[in-house]
Design a protein around this nucleic acid. Structure first.
Lengths: 250, 250
DNA sequence: TTTTATTTTGCGTTTATTTGCATGTTTGTG
DNA sequence: CACAAACATGCAAATAAACGCAAAATAAAA
């Protein structure tokens, strides 16, 4: 393995895990501890990590570009996605749009599940390649690369002829009073349409998104049927439950 | 082998494999390690790679490596894809369907290219995520997982309102007499439609696909404008050239 | 085509990196 | 304080890179 390659791996691991232990790294990367120490020393000199006795710490907040986001096993999101699984029944028609949490959800779907998935997100479609009993219907449109979803008039029109049992809505921002919102007009329009053609709507929301808002409003938050979150503050939960949303937490 | 050609191969390999070892390259390209080192030094100076001790790393964002990594014909396909690049002009409307060769092609498109890409293949769309000046229009439909393309009535209907300058048709089987064929009815229908709305059609074909056929015929082979292949048998080439196809080989 | 000029390549030699190990020192912890 | 784990330092082996030079290949000119 190349030295720089190994150091990049260390940085990636650190990005995922906050801290690393030198002896661990030695095993995981199968090089001697001396080599790891030398790596850590170099990375520390470049201020890419903070060296401490027996290991190293991450400097600054975790980086979240799209690709590392996909690789990073964000445990919280995995947990949320895992809780969502129980709402999936055989032969359901699922409507799934973009977002990393939705991608986690799809990756956890059992390979044997029989269902139909409608999506406007290429990554979601790709993740279902090996689910032989899931029929995937892609909605076309203009690819919006930041969220990796197809948007536009055709997207909305295609949705006209469809109905779904359960819509897994990717959430950017949600506020109990203001509603579900995000920074892109076209994306809001598509989500609104998706909500309209679905029987039930489920949203997985990490607590950092709760009670935040952006400029384009999709709909009031009470369109949601289920809200899965890691936030356990009783007053926050009550806020949504009072809107007839069934809130699922730990 | 010419120097430029070899350096392009190095870039292709690097694109595919994220890193290269100088001594490996020396063997794979059958030149001395000194030559490889000189190549790497030049490419590094142009910022096309990142030189490190004992090898080099890829610069820029990762590419979509969706299909099985160590494909036997991978290098040949990259060569074919590379030859296809010259037919792409600024501000063109490209229509691209599925296939590994097409994916290789897309991965080799310069990040600065201005163009519009229409595709029914999610992997192609994903591969264009970092091409900030390429507008991607996805055609929806039912995902056919073997080829990873969207198919069906909606797919064909969506294509009705579109026109493309150049269609990169993924080829399963082609025979000079029987035509272009494949084993799936719906896919054949979509390809036929795509051919109908395109000004020119380009096909990249490895020699093992030449003069083979399957049960669903897309069209006669003479719809092609360009045929890029690694087959250099003069009689085979003449077969296609006699159909007014411009054949590009080594 | 033949000849000439230029570029590219391979080899021997020298120099530099990287890695693991041995040895002695420091640090954290009970 | 004791003691193990972690660390720094120096060293040697293995690889890899840099350099100069001559042979070979390619391009250009006659």
């Amino acid at each position: 393995m190349l030295k720089q390659e190994r150091q990049q791996k260390i940085l990636n691991i650190l990005n995922d895990e906050q801290k690393v232990i030198a002896s661990d790294l030695s095993q995981r990367l199968s090089v001697s501890e001396d080599t790891i120490r030398r790596d850590l020393k170099e990375l520390d000199k470049k201020d890419l990590i903070r060296r401490v006795h027996s290991g190293a710490l991450r400097v600054g907040p975790p980086v979240v570009d799209f690709y590392t986001r996909q690789q990073v096993k964000s445990e919280i999101k995995m947990d949320l996605a895992n809780k969502a699984l129980e709402f999936v029944k055989e032969n359901m028609v699922l409507l799934i749009d973009g977002g990393t949490t939705n991608l986690h959800f799809v990756n956890q779907l059992p390979l044997t599940l029989k269902a139909t998935v409608i999506t406007n997100s290429p990554p979601i479609a790709m993740a279902l390649k090996n689910h032989n009993h899931i029929e995937v219907i892609m909605i076309g449109g203009t690819l919006f690369k930041e969220s990796m979803v197809n948007l536009g008039i055709e997207t909305v029109e295609s949705l006209n002829n469809m109905r779904a049992d359960l819509y897994l809505m990717g959430i950017h921002k949600i506020d109990a009073n203001i509603g579900i919102s995000l920074p892109n007009l076209a994306e809001a329009a598509v989500k609104r349409k998706m909500a309209a053609i679905s029987n039930e709507i489920l949203a997985m929301v990490t607590s950092d998104k709760l009670n935040t808002f952006s400029n384009h409003i999709v709909s009031p938050s009470n369109v949601l049927t289920y809200l899965i979150t890691d936030n356990i503050q009783p007053d926050v939960i009550r806020l949504y439950e009072s809107q007839q949303i069934s809130v699922i937490t730990e």
